[in-house]
């Protein structure tokens, strides 16, 4: 059946998931807007704790970049957390729960050298995009 062009527009224009590369500070900052558009973060940071086990298959650890630290959790539901080495840079994909100050990871692995080299660029790109987005949101 046919769909009117305005329906197509709303379907296309609807706020959809964004994946942002972010330093810990910007994870906290952009999470304020997670109620407006779904956000998933890519964070690169140094593992700064042992990996400890919690309830419901949780694995807890701390990620650090500069002075900021981010408590992380990974639930071993359908796969195990790979062996992580303290002091190495890891790449975590996940969402941030501001109330509990915890970063829920869906994927954790060591970051490649190339990823580390380009990470700041992607953070900058995401920051510019989100700044512009938030500005248009506030204008509406």
């Amino acid at each position: 059946q046919e769909i009117s062009s305005s329906q197509v527009k709303t379907k296309i224009k609807k706020n959809s998931l964004r994946i942002l590369s972010a330093v810990i500070q910007s994870v906290r900052h952009w999470s304020q807007y997670a109620y407006k558009t779904a956000l998933l973060f890519e964070v690169l940071g140094t593992l700064d704790s042992a990996v400890t086990s919690g309830a419901y298959g949780a694995k807890n650890f701390l990620l650090r970049d500069g002075k900021e630290t981010l408590p992380c959790v990974f639930y071993e539901i359908d796969r195990e957390l790979p062996r992580l080495i303290r002091g190495r840079v890891h790449r975590c994909m996940g969402t941030y729960d501001a109330k509990r100050n915890i970063f829920k990871c869906v994927s954790v692995r060591p970051a490649t050298a190339q990823e580390q080299n380009t990470f700041q660029d992607f953070v900058k790109i995401a920051d510019v995009e989100m700044t512009a987005y938030v500005k248009t949101m506030n204008e509406m």
């Binding site: 769909i3 190339q114 380009t118 660029d121 992607f122």
Partner: peptide
Amino acid sequence: WRSGLKVNLLSCKLADPVEASQSFL
């Protein structure tokens, strides 16, 4: 018109982060 927006992926390869960031920047 039927499904809003139709996208076919013709090729899907691991992106080179340097290439991607250069392209954005």
